[in-house]
Write a protein that binds this DNA or RNA. Structure first.
Length: 284
DNA sequence: AGACATGATTTCTA
DNA sequence: TAGAAATCATGTCT
């Protein structure tokens, strides 16, 4: 029964019209992404689902036919036997019951394997990792601008995340993912990001100079040359992220760690690891 | 084809 | 429960 329900829900069993499209739409919605080529993948999903559906129905038909044929065959046999021995209606009923049970268990297997096929298709369709798309250049730019102009505390608030998400045309959780990835990758390899940081520092500085104020997305904080001083007033590199005392794997360059607690409290001028004593971003 | 980049997921922790 | 860290899976570049 559960298998039946599932096949019905997936549009494999049940009426042909629109079969699967609802499920595909639901799957697409669950996937969360609003990719431009969604319709392509959507139709791909539908095609595959209708393939499964076709196989399922043709197999089902075959089984039903075979079941009927076998039943009549057995009935004929019993009829023949009734000439030589008494065959009660009860016996006939029993035989038919056995045959039907056998065939329904075969049908069950068919349903089960169809369900599996649908699940695999669905998981492929839904698995966001499989359909990962890089963000647009403009979106990455917006995120990077925010990140580098908040280097001292790259933890956007919920509102900031929402605003960034809106600007970038992505979801809030994608923004969170992006910042999570960015923070960890930045910390792991600051050297590699210095050039990028410098570029955004210049950008922010230029746009600040042009607008004669803060850049629109960095209302309260300073851009990179002005950057890390967000709240600290310190000229030291105040990067102190990381909820636990994070130690850089290679304390060669101006390593840093962020402190989650620094989100709530204005960053303390405080105990920077010696590795933070040098200015960051190759601006020394 | 392989290396690297990057978005998403999983696991763990405070 | 948000974030760190590790890892996965795909995209992109050479």
């Amino acid at each position: 029964m559960r298998l039946d329900n599932m096949l019905l829900a997936e549009g494999v069993a049940g009426p042909e019209k629109g079969g699967g499209s609802a499920a595909a739409a639901a799957a697409a919605a669950a996937a969360g992404g609003v990719s431009p080529d969604n319709s392509i993948e959507h139709s791909d999903y539908r095609n595959k689902l209708s393939q499964i559906r076709q196989i399922y129905h043709s197999e089902l038909e075959k089984y039903e036919q075979a079941c009927n044929e076998f039943t009549t065959h057995v009935m004929n046999l019993l009829r023949e036997q009734s000439r030589t021995r008494p065959v009660s209606p009860k016996e006939i009923e029993r035989m038919v019951g056995i045959i039907h049970r056998k065939f329904s268990s075969i049908q069950m297997q068919l349903k089960q394997s169809t369900c599996e096929a649908v699940m695999i298709l669905r998981s492929r369709f839904l698995d966001a990792r499989r359909k990962r798309r890089n963000f647009s250049k403009q979106a990455t730019e917006v995120l990077n601008e925010y990140f580098y102009s908040h280097l001292s505390n790259p933890y956007p608030s919920e509102e900031a995340k929402e605003e960034l998400a809106k600007k970038c045309g992505i979801t809030v959780s994608q923004v969170s993912n992006w910042f999570g990835n960015k923070r960890i990758r930045y910390k792991k390899n600051i050297g590699k990001f210095q050039e990028e940081a410098n570029i955004y520092a210049v950008k922010t500085a230029v746009s600040a100079a042009q607008s004669g104020g803060d850049s629109p997305n960095t209302p309260s904080s300073a851009g990179t040359p002005r950057y890390p001083s967000e709240g600290t007033g310190s000229q030291q590199h105040p990067l102190l992220w990381g909820r636990s005392s994070w130690e850089p794997p290679l304390p060669t360059t101006s390593a840093s760690c962020w402190n989650r607690s620094s989100q709530e409290l204005p960053p303390q001028p405080a105990p920077l690891p010696c590795s933070l004593q040098r200015p960051l971003l190759g601006l020394e």
